[in-house]
Design a protein around this nucleic acid. Structure first.
Lengths: 193, 193
DNA sequence: AACTAAAACTAATAATCATTAGTTTTTTGC
DNA sequence: GCAAAAAACTAATGATTATTAGTTTTAGTT
């Protein structure tokens, strides 16, 4: 009859992620998190050392996962255009895997303490540089239109980064559909013909 | 005397917009706003009735402007594809006009009080419905690829709504360049040939 | 100069909330 | 069963902060 009981800390992290996503880090009190888990606010301190620790764990683990997966793609021997497709898939996969963590990573990183913020921004910067370099290579190969690389990166990342909101609103779309739509929309644009 | 009040209030609104954008509504104290304007926190109450009033004025005026401009475009006799181009221009224009107000409208509307939030969500909903209907018409006309209209709307709005962040980071791009890049990127996609 | 109202100031209020202290209950290993 | 550790509770603490109260200064009008 033992169903898998997540450790208490995992439960806390899970509820924190949901609430931080829904109401923001500042807009969420420890009391609210505690209530969801079924205890009083101060009891949380038997499991965590601070509110900020919760954010840091959730956010940094997602950021590091992104970094790792990006490095795999970047270092692969695929051609640039295929790498780009894999990047799109990566966003879809990680967003579907944990939309709350994704939302936190994108929206709440300002509340990290200084050391973590520095590391986060380094990871993000490296990610963007790799992404840009893949776009640049595709352009040099003549595979995609010549265009301001930074602006192109901005357009693509805008869409990929908003994906968590789409998934929250329309949970019925699966990974394959999302990847397909995104690749078509980004690669081919919307004009017919 | 009326003029004095107005200009002082405009000053306060301006600094509030900058700070709300930079640190969020909750992350901004009245004391901080007051300091930027050159007074003590409580002195603000000679000009405003509450912190929330500042957010409401900034946010709702922008939302209503959007609504009004959208209605002009929607009601025009242009063909659907031209309307879409005008919508892109509208986002560029209003974003460049006041990036702080745009960021507030997109990110801080949750802090509106109930009545304003309801109105805001109605405006937003109407905006999205009109946008979607224009996309649908373009699709029916065979002008753009057949595809899930909601997802297409999501992709386009993701980019347009992120524009304020781009403008903050790269202030050297002007309206014409932004419109051109966006129209090309959205309409034609990135694939060469 | 004197009156008035706007607009500033300082000090107090009250709410929220992360965190600590101290205590009691529950669980666990034997 | 039982000691000890883990995990819960209640009750402070202290910081922040929106807002109000009461007072003084500033500036415009007569």
């Amino acid at each position: 009859m033992e169903e898998r009981i997540r450790s208490r800390k995992q439960q806390i992290l899970h509820e924190a992620a949901r609430l931080f996503h829904k109401n923001g880090y500042r807009g969420t009190s420890l009391q609210q998190i505690a209530e969801k888990v079924g205890m009083e606010g101060p009891s949380l301190y038997n499991h965590i050392s601070s509110k900020n620790e919760l954010l840091t764990i959730l956010l940094m683990s997602n950021a590091r996962k992104f970094d790792e997966r990006m490095r795999d793609i970047y270092a692969s021997s695929l051609d640039a255009l295929s790498k780009l497709e894999h990047l799109i898939s990566l966003h879809v996969e990680l967003t579907l895997e944990d939309p709350d963590a994704m939302a936190l990573m994108l929206n709440e990183w300002t509340h990290l303490d200084e050391a973590d913020k520095t590391e986060y921004l380094q990871l993000r910067d490296r990610y963007e540089k790799s992404f840009r370099s893949i776009l640049q290579e595709s352009m040099d190969n003549g595979k995609i239109h010549t265009m301001d690389t930074n602006f192109l990166l901005f357009m693509i990342l805008s869409t990929l980064r908003s994906l968590y909101a789409w998934c929250a609103r329309y949970p019925e779309y699966n990974r394959v559909e999302l990847e397909n739509y995104l690749k078509r929309g980004i690669m081919q644009g919307i004009l017919a013909g």
